[in-house]
Every structure is written in structure tokens, then in C-alpha cells.
Design a protein around this nucleic acid. Structure first.
Length: 509
RNA sequence: GGCGACGUAGCUCAGUUGGUCAGAGCGCUCGACUCAUAAUCGAGAGGUCGACAGUUCAAGUCUGUCCGUCGCUACCA
């Protein structure tokens, strides 16, 4: 059995969950679900990043402790992911003891190996970014991101010898073309490594809300470096070497393109410095654009996952349901380039793919079967014309997931839905007399629905399970294992079908 | 400034090594059907494949230039 370990970035608790977080997390979830279907021993991690000056200050402003501050926001992420049916196996918080231990273990190793040294750092610091800037990176002394003055700071820092790993990493990414997907982002990583790679500051003395540096307790680690290590913490780094050995070699990080440098350059170097030679792979996505523009905080605040799922009268949002939201984020934006988030497009896609094609297919097949085949469903024909289509759909779907292209995978699955609708139109079972011919047509259609339910379950887990049950299948669709479960000819019939409300009621734009 | 990507039907995009490559889905129009959530099925609408020049028997598919969009990165001011 192979293993698959996938992570989302851990989200900074200074910000409430928005659709950008949801986009990343839903994609990671779909990959996790797909790999479970494929029978992989899968580990899916998400969580929250809770250290740093920004949290410390926010807590002070609110008159609470930093941990209380983090608690209140972290739980909102948990709730959001629960609502979106995210199937994470663990939820890590960087304030947890296990994480502190892992950070200290890993950094101590890097220190012992001679890759960390002390130096004085002086510069202009933006609290919002938690980063130092040079004069010309600022806009009249103000941080361009946060539009506030950068502060003069001078402190003794520990530095990480990133420069010592530039060549090794360059070679690594040159030789392994599948480490960073899509390919365009791999080129960016190579570009970063071909330039001068400078050592980086990794500790702070000016704050205390962080993980203490084990060999010098006046310092805490800079929030970014503490944060990255969460990926190792969660699979037992420093605590359970067997577990770490099992999952770490299969690590995949789902990230947005804005954090490529930290993840694809800094993080692997830190691993190497600590003597870990298995380097993670990356799935890099672009940003969701709203009306062609990069999402701003204010625009984001206008749209939350919850509003899209449940609908919102004030904003005149219709309820897409959990699966509707998930499907849109997986199917509409190309994976990699920036994609447009469009409410109108979301409705069009929902009505077309979910309501008209899939939901309606389930409905019509169950109804016709009930009218023409008696109380118990017929079995499928081992030699149906749909058999080849099901095989094609499975092959193409599998290939697209392997290439890290959810939109293409879903399109491939939906091809079987369209083929089944065509098949029904060609056979017109509703005109036929009850008998073997109708039984065959309906059995085949039910078999196609069975297979689609499995293949579509990573995207629309709720509806897939519902369809699964309505055609008389038992157990959980999530527990099916590919490729066997997708092999044509397994629908045995002899069971009662269930009618019900439409899986996806049509929405009015 | 350097490096790189992209610019194909109204929309989102497919189009390996040049020769059925002018395509798919959605949208739209018309037709069919009525089992189904006014869903489904079929047909069509004719986009000079950003512009120009070139290589070739043959170019979205190669070369050069230009225009446009974007990303990464550097630096002067």
C-alpha cells in the first residue's frame, strides 16, 4: 500500500476564514479523498498558525492573552472546515506542545550541524508583514502592503545558512520535474535558486510569543520558520520516528503561489540542514480573482464560505449547499493560473453540471426504473455500450488527479454522465414495454450512476453518498476502493430504489 | 532592465515531436422528445487560431519583430 500525505498551509489566526482559505482547503481535501479511494494510506493535515508579533499585539488590544486570542480564531477555522465537509485527519495548532518539541528538535539539529549562526540585524520592520524591508521596498517609509510606517529595529538574530543549500536544491528541482506542479511554478522556483541566495534571519528577541530557541532562551523563532515545521510535527517528527518515516516521504504541500519561496526554497533547505533528505512535493494554485482583480481584504469580507453554502438574503445569494460550493472551487478555476471567482458563473456551473446533468440523471433513472421494472431494480449488462465509456471516464479521471488537475478530472467523470443521458435518449426506455430490454437499459444506467458516485465523491461527498443510497447501494461510497470499484458490471440489482427531493435543486440567477 | 508565461468560437479553455487541428464544455438559436429539476437529445451558428514578416511541399503547431495581458526578479531614479 502506498502512502499519501497532503497538507494545507496553516492559516494565520489574525484573519477569519474566507473563500481564499476555502479554495485551498477544498482542493487539498479533494486530493485526500481521491487518494483514499485509490487505497492509499492517506494523511490529510490542516491547522492554524498562532505565533508572532501580530497576534501578540492583537491580543493586547483585546485585553486577552495571545493564546486566548488564538483560541477564538482557530475554532472558526475548525467550524468552517466542518461545514465544508473537509476530511482532515488532524488539525494542528502551532501553540501545541507537540509542535514546540518538534520545532526545537529540528532546529537544534540544524544548529548542531552548523547551519545556524548568530549575527546582528538592523533594519526597517513591518509588524504587519513581520518582515524587514529596505528603504526602497517601502513607499515613503510605509509598508506597501499594510500602508503603515515600518519601524526601526535592531536585534541579535540567529541566521540560517540558506546559501549552503542553493546548489543542492537547484539540482533537486532540475532533476525531479514532478516536485512542483503545475510546471510553470517549477520554473519560478528554479529562477529563485539561480539567483543569489542569501542567508535568512530566523529568530527574534523583540517578542516572546513564539517557540523558544532551545540553545538561547532570549530568542523565539521567527513565526514563518516555526510555522513550516508543523508539516513535520503532525506526522511525528521527533516523537514517533516510525510514523514520520511512513508519511514524510509521501508529503505533498498544497500552497498558493504567494508562498512559493518560503515553501519551495526555505523549507526544503531547513529539512536538509536537519538531516532529512526526503523533500516534499508541491501543488501550487493561483489566486481567485474577483472580477479580474486580486481579492482584497474588504472584498473577501464580502463573501464567506458560509454565505455561499447557506445563501444570504442581504447579498441576494442563493444557497449552493456544501457540494455546490466545493464543486465550483474544484471545477471552475484552472488549477495553477489565477482563476476568476464569479457568482454568476457559479450559478451557471451548478445548474448545468450538478442540477441538470447529474441530479436530473439520478432522478429520471430512478423514476423510469420504478415505472418499468417493478419494485426491485434490475442488474446491469456486463456487455453494455456504456461499459467502454465508464472505462474511459475512469482512466481519464485517474490520470487528471495524478497530474494534479481537479477541473480536468471532474470533466472526465462528467463525460460518463453525459454519455448516460445520451444512452437513455437513444433507447427511450420510457416507451418500452416492461421486460428484458428495459431492464437492461435501466440496469446499465444504474451502474453508470454507481460508478459516477464513486468518481465524483471527492468533489461532492454528500450528494455522491445520497445517490449511492438511492440506487440501493449500502455502506459508504467513501469506502469503495479503486480501480476495482469502478469496474463495469457490479450493479446486481434486486434492491429497492429510493425516490426523493432533487439532489441539486435548480438555482435561479 | 532581465527571465518566463500567455493571447484559439460570446465565455472557460483542449490542441505531444509542423501535414483531417480548426476542437470540447458552457451560453445562444432552431428542431425532437416528454421518463426527469422548463431538465434531456439532435442540429446549427462559420473563430483570417493577437499583428506582421520568414522557414517549409505544408504552420495555432518552428524563427524573428511588434502589440497586448500577466508572473517572477533586478536596479536606477
Amino acid at each position: 500500500m502506498s502512502t499519501f500525505y497532503i497538507t494545507t498551509p496553516i492559516y494565520y489566526v489574525n484573519d477569519a476564514p474566507h473563500i481564499g482559505h476555502a479554495y485551498t482547503t477544498i482542493n487539498a481535501d479533494a486530493f485526500a479523498r481521491w487518494h483514499r479511494l485509490m487505497g492509499d494510506d492517506t494523511m490529510f493535515l490542516t491547522g492554524t498558525d498562532e505565533h508572532g508579533l501580530k497576534i501578540q499585539r492583537t491580543a493586547e488590544e483585546n485585553g486577552v492573552t495571545p493564546l486566548e486570542q488564538a483560541d477564538s480564531t482557530s475554532v472558526r477555522f475548525r467550524e468552517a472546515w466542518e461545514q465544508l465537509n473537509i476530511s482532515n485527519d488532524d488539525f494542528i495548532r502551532t501553540t501545541e506542545e507537540r509542535h514546540h518539541l518538534a520545532v526545537q528538535t529540528l532546529m537544534q539539529k540544524a544548529y548542531d550541524n552548523g547551519y545556524i549562526y548568530s549575527d546582528t540585524f538592523e533594519g526597517l520592520y513591518c509588524v504587519g508583514c513581520e518582515a524587514y524591508y529596505t528603504e526602497d521596498e517601502l513607499d515613503d517609509g510605509n509598508c506597501k502592503v499594510h500602508e503603515r510606517p515600518a519601524e526601526h529595529m535592531s536585534e541579535d538574530n540567529y541566521f540560517f545558512k540558506l546559501s549552503a543549500f542553493a546548489d543542492q536544491l537547484l539540482e533537486h528541482y532540475e532533476q525531479h520535474s514532478d516536485q512542483v506542479r503545475p510546471d510553470g511554478y517549477r520554473n519560478e522556483v528554479l529562477g529563485l535558486l539561480r539567483q543569489e541566495v542569501r542567508d535568512i534571519s530566523i529568530s527574534r528577541t523583540s517578542i516572546n510569543w513564539g517557540v523558544p530557541v532551545p540553545w538561547d532562551d532570549k530568542h523565539v523563532f521567527y513565526v514563518w520558520y516555526d510555522a513550516l515545521i508543523n508539516y513535520a510535527t503532525a506526522v511525528g517528527y521527533g516523537a514517533d520516528e516510525d510514523r514520520f518515516g511512513t508519511y514524510w516521504p509521501a508529503a505533498h504541500h498544497m500552497i498558493g503561489k504567494d508562498i512559493i519561496r518560503f515553501h519551495c526554497v526555505f523549507w526544503p533547505a531547513m529539512l536538509l540542514a536537519a538531516g532529512i533528505t526526503d523533500l516534499p512535493k508541491f501543488y501550487v494554485h493561483g489566486w481567485l480573482l474577483i472580477g479580474g482583480e486580486k481579492m482584497s481584504k474588504s472584498k473577501l469580507n464580502g463573501v464567506t464560505p458560509k454565505q455561499l453554502i447557506e445563501g444570504d438574503d442581504e447579498q441576494a445569494f442563493v444557497p449552493f449547499g456544501v457540494d455546490g460550493v466545493r464543486y465550483h472551487f474544484l471545477r471552475d478555476p484552472s488549477f495553477g493560473p489565477d482563476g476568476d471567482f464569479s457568482y454568476e458563473q457559479m450559478i451557471v456551473r451548478y445548474n448545468s453540471d450538478l442540477a441538470n446533468q447529474f441530479g436530473n440523471l439520478v432522478q429520471r433513472v430512478i423514476t423510469v426504473t420504478g415505472k418499468k421494472c417493478g419494485d426491485l431494480a434490475p442488474s446491469c449488462d456486463g456487455d453494455s455500450p456504456l461499459k467502454a465509456e465508464a472505462e474511459k471516464a475512469f482512466t481519464a479521471t485517474t490520470e487528471a488527479w495524478a497530474r494534479a488537475q481537479p477541473p480536468i478530472a471532474l470533466d472526465a467523470t462528467w463525460r460518463l454522465i453525459r454519455e448516460t443521458n445520451e444512452y437513455l435518449a437513444a433507447k427511450e426506455p420510457w416507451k418500452m414495454e416492461p421486460g428484458a430490454d428495459v431492464d437492461r437499459v435501466m440496469g446499465d444506467s444504474l451502474e453508470a450512476i454507481r460508478i459516477v458516485s464513486i468518481l465524483a465523491s471527492p468533489a461532492i461527498p454528500v450528494a455522491a453518498q445520497l445517490a449511492w443510497e438511492r440506487i440501493g447501494m449500502t455502506g459508504n461510497v467513501d469506502d469503495q476502493r479503486l480501480p476495482d470499484a469502478a469496474t463495469w458490471g457490479q450493479y446486481a440489482g434486486g434492491v429497492a430504489l429510493t425516490t426523493g427531493d432533487p439532489l441539486f435543486p435548480r438555482l435561479k440567477g
